[in-house]
Amino acid sequence: MITIGIDLGTAAIKVVFIDKDNFLWGKALPTLPQHVKICEQLLKEGMETVSVKKEDIAGIATTGYGKRLFPGSKKIIDEISANAVGACVLSKRRARTIINIGGQDVKVIKVSPEGKVEDFKMNDKCAAGTGRFFEMAGRILDAPVGEFGDLSFQSLSQVCINSTCAVFAESEIVSLLSMGKSRNDIIAGLHKSVARRISELTGSLYLEEAIYLDGGPAANKGLNLAIKEELMRDINVFERPQFTVAFGAAIILSEKMSVN
């Protein structure tokens, strides 16, 4: 039987189809006010791609900020627990620390070998260093966020960005551009600035190996490198970092159903 996980995040809605603990299919669309419609559209596409019928689906688990918005949910799971389980399974139980960069928050999660959350830190209401922050930067720099990694590798002289506040960084970037700083150098500076912010967030949490990075911005190789340098630790990135949470939700539901 197929189990589905939907992560209704602030920046994107992600749908994942799994069979036991195998990732079958996943797709994300930007979050818009019509949450249910987007979910249904993704579900339809997934069912067609995987060639499954409604009766083959054991259930749908929802997670993320909009987890209560989808009426067809069989189980509502908090995003931190879903992330822990998802990372645990995908890393073959190696993950001990997860750094999740989401649309509007950053989480650092300590996880047990069984996928249980042991401790976590999360930023307060502030979009500093999150997916939204990169979206803002992409808009001003006129560069797709997906290309930030490659662009930052072309930087010759990284610029220092002092602000990680999504609002103040915007004016700082504009000033830097008007001073003639190159786009690539600014992007490299942004990565460094976000990495520093993440390092501060970890605070008193001891970052236990192995450390995994996930969430949409984790696909950015330039950011990964900056985080690695800032934390002075090895950082692993999942193949599909955006889908870890939805995957984890599907796993939790699948396990719950097999127990029942």
Binding site: Y65, D78, I80, E118, F120, M122
Partner: peptide, 10 residues
């Protein structure tokens, strides 16, 4: 709420 729900799990 997201943090509290995860805290409950711990």
């Amino acid at each position: 709420l997201a943090r509290l729900e995860a805290f409950r799990e711990t």
